[in-house]
């Protein structure tokens, strides 16, 4: 194999990545242009109307941005009390044991379950529970979607944070023990400060995942195109409004959906890049 030809092939393969990413941004921007042009960029983002009756079409992204942010934040809140213990279990309390191995296999399997199956489970198992607890009459809504979303992001947050908990050097821990600290005190005084930035960045990346999650949210959020009044009400997220209406939309509505896609793309891109940047920095320290 000629070395120069091989180098060129490698280079061309690497060039595909900028081409694809550039193409994504270009396609989203050009196709979203109509909507932004028609409603005005800020107006589109801050309007909460979504009506597609012919002649009086009004599209605004605010209810969906709200829906996405609410489900994501709630999911994060529900996720932390489980992912943090898993990280401590795998990375500290039972580090390197068989049981830790089993737990990390379980979490990695959780991460592998397709989102549509999470949606089914949420719809047929969790929704009736929410209904029977009288939290909301129809069972679906922002709260239900966030609960399932939380389960879906636990594996990501847990496995990444466990990596950082594991990396805390033994001599620091021994230092704490030698001063008479109990294990719980050592965790609080040594592990959290040392692994903290890494744990924090793993939650940022978990948020990045939750933001774009489509099918689960679509199946559970209730799909109403208005501002949600409370977390027990139904709503729509950016991803779910696209999933619901993209197939039947054309013209201005299609462009508005693509505009929402562009906003979602930018938000996830920013969150992910911040997360990756923080992770890289946390790994070096």
């Amino acid at each position: 194999m000629n070395d120069k030809i091989f180098r060129t092939i490698l280079y061309l393969a690497a060039c595909l990545m900028p081409v694809v990413c550039g193409g994504i941004v270009y396609a989203l921007v050009t196709d979203a242009f109509e909507a932004f042009n028609h409603f005005g960029f800020l107006n589109f983002l801050t309007s909460s109307e979504w009506s597609y009756t012919d002649g009086t079409e009004r599209y605004g992204a605010l209810p969906f941005i709200t829906g996405t942010l609410l489900t994501t934040l709630l999911a994060l809140v529900f996720c932390i009390p489980f992912s943090l213990p898993v990280a401590l279990f795998v990375g500290e309390y039972f580090k390197g044991t068989r049981i830790a191995e089993v737990l990390s296999t379980i979490t990695s399997l959780l991460a592998g379950i397709p989102s549509i199956i999470y949606g089914l489970w949420g719809f047929y198992t969790l929704r009736p529970i929410v209904m029977s607890l009288n939290i909301s009459p129809q069972g679906s809504g922002i709260l239900t979607a966030s609960l399932v979303l939380a389960i879906m992001i636990v594996p990501y947050a847990a496995s990444l944070s466990a990596e950082f908990v594991k990396m805390v050097p033994d001599d620091l821990k021994e230092g704490a023990y030698s001063l008479g600290a109990t294990r719980a005190e050592m965790v609080r005084k040594v592990i959290f400060p040392v692994a903290g930035s890494g744990i924090f960045s793993s939650y940022i990346l978990a948020i990045g995942r939750a933001l774009g999650e489509t099918m689960t949210v679509t199946m559970l959020i209730g799909n109403t195109n208005q501002m949600p009044g409370s977390i027990t009400e139904t709503g729509n997220s950016m991803a779910s409004i696209i999933a619901n209406q993209f197939g039947e939309a054309d013209g201005l509505r299609l462009s508005s959906l693509i505009a929402i896609g562009l906003v979602l793309f930018l938000i996830t891109a920013i969150i992910n890049l911040i997360g990756k940047y923080l992770i890289k920095r946390a790994r070096i320290v």
């Binding site: 990545m17 900028p18 694809v20 990413c21 994504i24 989203l28 990045g208 995942r209 933001l211 774009g212 999650e213 489509t214 991803a239 696209i242 999933a243 896609g261 979602l264 793309f265 996830t268 891109a269 969150i271 992910n272 890049l273 990756k276």
Partner: peptide
């Protein structure tokens, strides 16, 4: 960009 593409929501 690889990170970016990996994090891009599937619906997009």
């Amino acid at each position: 960009l690889t990170d970016l593409l990996q994090g891009t929501p599937s619906v997009i």
